[in-house]
Every structure is written in C-alpha cells, then in structure tokens.
Design a protein around this nucleic acid. Structure first.
Length: 192
DNA sequence: CCTTCGATCTACT
DNA sequence: GTAGATCGAAGGA
C-alpha cells in the first residue's frame, strides 16, 4: 500500500495543505471500504491563528492531539457533525489541515446509504458531509493516517490549485481574511 | 450543574 | 444568498 510517510507530513502546514490535494482518503469499516480524492483543504496555524482551536496554545482534551507529531487525525464534533483534520507541524506546535471536501472514488453505494438519496456532488462537498459519507467518527480521534482502518495514500497530481479565504470563520477577526484555503481548480466537488 | 457557542447543514427566497 | 435548527464540548459558578 502506498501510504504517505512521515517526510510527507513533515512539510510546513501551508505546503502540506496543497500537497494533500489529489491524495486518496480511505476509511474501512465492517460495511465496506469508502474512499475519495481530497479536493479541498484549509490550513489552521496554531498559536497565531485566531480561527484555530489551538489559538494561543489553547490546550484541551480535544486539541491535545494537535500538540503531538504530524500525521494523526484530529476529529472534532460540532453542530451535530464530525469534522476531520490532518495534524501537521512538529510535536509541540499545534497546527492542522482541515479536509473540507473529497471527490467520491469507491464505496459510492455505501455513501448513498449513509447520506440518503442525494445528487452525487452533494455526498461529500462539505466537511460534515464527507465524514458521514466515509464513516469517519469521533472514534478515529488520534488515529495515525498510515494504518487501517483510516489512512491516506498517494493519488494524482492536480492540474492547477486555487487559493482563497477560508470559510465559516466570520467571527475570527483578522484571521478571517487569511488566504489559507486550497482547492483543485475546476472541481465540481468544492463546498462552494 | 448550567450557560454559551460554534472550522455546519438544510431548506427556502 | 440567508435564516434557523441543533447538541456536544468548553468554561465558569
């Protein structure tokens, strides 16, 4: 299996956020395997990022994993949904990359079963939607992304990457305008 | 214990 | 594009 290794996750967070585009996010459950290409991410840079949960090194039970080494899953429940991040940065530096959207690749039947009868593009075009479609839950908190049942493998090289402001952080002061959102240019599966 | 607050989604205009 | 739902976690008493 072509798992991404530690050198990959050791990249600076902003670069990692772009490198993750086109990679495959895979989740195995007893119901089957579901996977998709990552096509939209957002970077959250620890202590200096007003929009990050780890702003000012805020450390709680939930943000704890971000203070560890890169390559682990940071799952967080909010608004009745579960979001998933890839922890980045060295141990002690709480940075992470939020996965905002993926393009369905395999296990699409399973996604329809979990999400209900929707259009294909509505299966995974949002942070809370993709976790439900893939079956990612709070139980995956702290899981390393290079061992089953949850892992990331190499995918394809996107033709072109777009960059822009992050979404859903209107109340985060100056941080709301930081251009730390990345997506595959032209993809139909970006959240907006 | 009790109050507040979202890194969202959905439906509806 | 925008308002409303909704519930677990965080933080204060």
């Amino acid at each position: 299996m072509d798992f991404l290794n530690k050198d990959f996750y050791a990249q600076p967070t902003l670069k990692l956020a772009q490198s993750l585009l086109g990679c495959q996010l895979v989740k195995e459950t007893k119901e089957g395997i579901a996977s998709g290409y990552i096509i939209e991410t957002e970077a959250y840079l620890g202590p200096d990022d007003q929009a990050a949960h780890s702003y000012k090194n805020k450390r709680t039970k939930r943000t704890e994993v971000m203070f560890g080494p890169a390559g682990y899953a940071y799952t967080y429940v909010m608004h009745t949904h579960c979001l998933v991040n890839v922890v980045s940065g060295l141990a002690g530096i709480p940075e992470a990359v939020l996965i905002r959207a993926v393009e369905p690749l395999s296990g699409i039947d399973l996604m329809y079963k979990r999400r209900g009868d929707k259009k294909e593009k509505d299966l995974t075009n949002g942070p809370g939607k993709l976790t439900k479609a893939l079956g990612i839950t709070q139980q995956d908190y702290g899981h390393p992304f290079n061992v089953p049942p949850l892992y990331i493998t190499h995918g394809y090289e996107p033709d072109h990457i777009s960059q822009g402001k992050r979404i859903g952080i209107e109340n985060s002061g100056d941080a709301r305008d930081y251009p730390w959102r990345f997506w595959v240019t032209g993809s139909k599966f970006v959240s907006r």
